[in-house]
Design a protein around this nucleic acid. Structure first.
Ligand code: FES
Ligand code: FES
Lengths: 146, 146
DNA sequence: GTATACTCTACTATGTTAGTAGAGATAGTC
DNA sequence: GACTATCTCTACTAACATAGTAGAGTATAC
């Protein structure tokens, strides 16, 4: 698996919206500032996230974005797969058995499948609810430690 | 982690040489045929593997390649990291803490570190001795099942 | 000395990544 | 109803990575 800047920004912007869940919408401008991303680049990412059903938007003045679903219902795996594509480390494991040939059993296949599985076990079990909670407590720790 | 064709060919050619360990050298021509790789591309990969201390070569007539170390002493992780580079999923986890900023603790860092760790746990514990054994028994199963 | 096989450097075509640019549509506010 | 803030959509580009190809050069067995 390789996380691109698109994927990185997507995860961060979803987290930013998760931290604002239940409150008002947030503008791209504000989001770009919070996660330190180029605004025009983030636009595209948000548009994709909207098509993926992760966020919804309101146009015009007082417009902005918010999560389309509760943060506990969105995982890192869902977002990163939607934005960056499959997470399997090699194409033949991604696309079924085509390139390996189903007759000759490649001994590396099991290795890549194992990597894919342990990776999925992690990213599919981290919700944005958990991440938001974590980010919040960090904030508190910082506040109390001043 | 993403395995490229270079990496894939590298692993396969090392396995081919592991299956021939202790015997005579094998020519690029023969190796390219066995693993089904473009011969001129495989040349470069083998040259890299030589620089990495994985294989050694003899030039001229009767020349060819063989493993430089016992197969039990070479892991998938060693080869793939040398050929394809670091296996961490995101640059800031690859290159220490530079891009994350050490003050603000990004909540995704732990996720990527976990992915990197479980991946390493797999690829660093698969030796080419084990793979060669596996490939050999498969061969036998095929023979007996005819 | 010649055939065979490894060595080394350079070049290329294609795709991916990380943006930038700008015109268009929509919704509040005066 | 104009104005302005905001999202929407398409197109373009520069830089880099990937997967090769090409060809001249060097060593070694016979
Ligand atoms: S050829 Fe598909 S995993 Fe090896
Ligand atoms: S910024 Fe480095 S892991 Fe998030």
């Amino acid at each position: 698996m390789r996380v691109t800047y698109r994927g990185d920004y997507a995860l961060k912007v979803v987290l930013a919206l998760a931290l604002n869940y239940g409150k008002d919408v947030v503008t791209i401008h504000e989001l770009a500032k919070r996660i330190d991303a180029p605004i025009k680049f983030l636009e595209q990412v948000l548009l994709d996230l909207k098509k993926g059903g992760f966020v919804e938007s309101r146009r015009g003045k007082m417009g902005g974005y918010r999560l389309a679903r509760p943060p506990g219902n969105i995982t890192v795996g869902q977002v990163i797969r939607f934005i960056d594509g499959p997470t399997e480390p090699i194409s033949c494991v991604r696309n079924g058995y085509s390139s390996c040939g189903d007759m000759y059993k490649c001994v590396f296949r099991k290795v890549w499948q194992d990597v894919a599985k342990t990776t999925s076990d992690i990213i599919d079990n981290v919700t944005f609810e958990a991440l938001a909670f974590e980010a919040d407590s960090e904030q508190e720790v910082l506040v109390y430690s001043i």
